[in-house]
Design a protein around this nucleic acid. Structure first.
Lengths: 219, 219
DNA sequence: GCTGACGATATTGTTGACAATATTGTTTGG
DNA sequence: CCAAACAATATTGTCAACAATATCGTCAGC
């Protein structure tokens, strides 16, 4: 069960830690003690230190002198800022995807959408959450902008768990899926402005829902 | 002249390297040999290695095993992607600044604009370039979104020198300043949609100019 | 003269020991 | 019992030595 595989490079250790933060195995505020990570990953200290420095560069952990690394906590206002960035970036990706996206990408998205439609009827918010991530990732990929894709990947790490929480509200789930359906139609029609506006509304809505959730997520 | 001051922390060494990349003292493709940086900064090897790993996390350098770090070069297509991200992010900052920006921030921007106006008559593209950076930074700061500010700071590092080059074209400089003047008016009037549209056009124009410049910048 | 093999040097990767600091536990005086 | 001073431990920061690999120069053979 526990993945105590021996990791090789410092970058892989960073991936390992990032993933654990993403899924909530390491929670905000938690201290990341070097020895513990060495035990769990089977790597050397220099690799762990390298990984932690990398993650600090990404803004995911903070390092205090002689006190070590800890998972950075995210305030509600920071979540708002992240969503504002998402509105801007995914909005423009939606426009670019509608305008320049390949027929293959658009077909993939349409297929994915039909899977999402099933989830709504089956009442499986977990699965919906996963497919939802994939849906958004596909749009960004289809826009052909890897720079923005990278920015979004980083932005999403701190809010990953929140995203899933929001889909336990079924009304929100249904509304989100309706947005998705509408956007798929706009993508296929090549309506860039319409797709961008719809994406911005959709993500804006997402934050509205999120900010109302009772959560001990914030500091 | 040469700043061979002894730097203390690894993070400071990273700042030192990043600044030298930004201003073109380290050019794309150039190898960053640890010993050289140790000599120039007066720090130890572990600090330098820490700095380089951090910078790789930021995507500014690439590290190959047993071949060390080198400044990552930027293709024209990557510049395009960066500009697409800027269009999105600075656009939304413009809207937020027009909507929620403080009177103080708006006054500061108006003052800065008058300095820029002087530059146009004085024909000093270097000074215009510096003030232009400050102008954009001020808008983002005024929007109150530090997350986006951080993203933009990173995005701008690889294109910093290109930005200055574009203002040696006087027509471009005059057009840019006219854009700025128009936007300042929109900010003061609180016209969020107008400000966003203007910012997007302005930055889009910037890329158009850039992509026409003959430059050995790209790989 | 050219090419490929070989060795010398340069550069980076890794490990371990030690120093500096923080954290925790204990004792002592009130 | 509480609090402050002190001691013990844990944790991180730093450095230097060594190993692994790449790069460069040299030379033999054709």
């Amino acid at each position: 069960m526990a993945e105590t595989l021996p990791l090789l490079t410092g970058s892989e250790v960073a991936d390992w830690i990032r993933e654990r933060i993403r899924v909530g195995r390491f929670v905000p505020g938690q201290r990341l003690v070097e020895v513990d990570i060495i035990r769990q990953t089977g790597t050397s200290r220099s690799k762990v230190r390298e990984a932690l420095q990398r993650l600090e560069g990404e803004g995911l952990v903070q390092i205090e002198e002689f006190r070590g690394a800890s998972v950075k906590s995210t305030s509600l206002d920071e979540v708002r800022q992240i969503y504002r960035a998402r509105v801007a970036l995914e909005g423009i990706c939606a426009a670019d995807f509608a305008r320049h996206g390949s027929a293959e990408h658009k077909a993939s998205l349409r297929d994915l959408q039909s899977q999402l439609d099933q989830c709504v009827d089956e009442r499986s918010p977990e699965r919906f959450g996963r497919l939802n991530l994939e849906w958004h990732r596909l749009v960004v990929e289809g826009s052909g902008n890897r720079t923005i894709a990278e920015l979004l990947k980083r932005l999403n790490v701190p809010i990953h768990r929140l995203l899933f929480e929001s889909f336990y509200d079924e009304a929100r789930l249904r509304r989100a899926n309706a947005d998705h359906q509408r956007m798929v139609a706009l993508f296929l029609a090549g309506d860039a402005d319409g797709a961008e506006a719809a994406m911005r509304d959709h993500i804006g809505d997402g934050f509205e829902t999120l900010s109302k959730i009772e959560s001990e997520f914030y500091r």
